[in-house]
Design a protein around this nucleic acid. Structure first.
Lengths: 140, 140
DNA sequence: ACTACAATGCAACAATGTTGCAAAATATTT
DNA sequence: AAATATTTTGCAACATTGTTGCATTGTAGT
């Protein structure tokens, strides 16, 4: 089943606007993750910086996208899978950051291994960020 | 064995200065991680913002501290263990971020579980960030 | 103590993110 | 389909965060 941008927006009780459709479309067409700068640049003669900020914020709140932890101070966003709903993320998957090409992959199908925490610690979410070389950049 | 700030600095071929000693001392006295803002504030009638930035940068380069990945756009630093040397980090340990008190713990003694990557992907570093409630904030 | 070198502070700048408000677009009602 | 209510956008101004060049100060080595 294939959802259009408008459908996804309506499903999340968001008014359908040009900027939201366009930004959501970028995520649907991109395999990896996007940073704020990517969106602002690629959107061509695009939207106001503020609009992009607010749109991303809205999408995160609605559970359409999620932020990816990074070691540097950049913020990246990626599409959530269908299991995500507002305020109820299912982000326990692995992110892979290629040091060569800079692409961020969401490896949704790989399960996050269970982590044994010290006594008294209770986990609500586990993020795993693996850095290295991706299959495209890896010499055979 | 206990190392003084001066000893640590000399061991890393850094000139021993007031700011470096003071900032390094903050890390030695702190269990968790520190953000730039923490350092600037706690250092009292302290140093220039630029000095803090440059000092942190230098410490990261020398392998004295390392950055911690976070989901929000904040950058946090924590002491490296002795195995770390310049450009050759041994950061494969788990970070725990308490949602209640905001403290970041470096759980050095917990091993990062092996992650099975797709074919062609090669990992050089694995960061695990667990969010939840720490032992201090957890109701018994 | 003198010299060479490195670190600091200041100023100015660049980048990133936030807020208030009028104008425009979208949704809802009649 | 038109009018009203609501939401979103763009602009401006601002706040925060991080960077760079350069003179001054401090540190290291002889």
């Amino acid at each position: 089943m294939f959802s259009s941008t408008s459908e996804i927006l309506k499903r999340n009780q968001l008014s359908v606007t040009e900027s939201r459709k366009k930004i959501l479309d970028m995520f649907l067409r991109t395999d990896g993750a996007l940073a704020h700068a990517d969106i602002e640049q690629r959107s061509g003669t695009g939207f106001d910086r503020v609009t992009v900020y607010r749109t991303l914020q809205t999408f995160v709140e609605k559970g359409i996208i999620h932020t990816i932890p990074t070691t540097d101070n950049s913020v990246r966003y990626a599409l959530c899978k269908d299991e995500c709903s507002a305020g109820h993320h299912h982000d326990d998957h692995i992110h892979f950051l290629c040091d060569a090409c800079g692409t961020t992959y969401c490896l949704d199908h790989i399960t996050v291994p269970a982590v044994q925490l010290p006594k008294g610690f209770r986990a609500t979410q586990t993020d795993v960020v693996v850095s290295g070389i991706c299959s495209k950049c890896n010499p055979v």
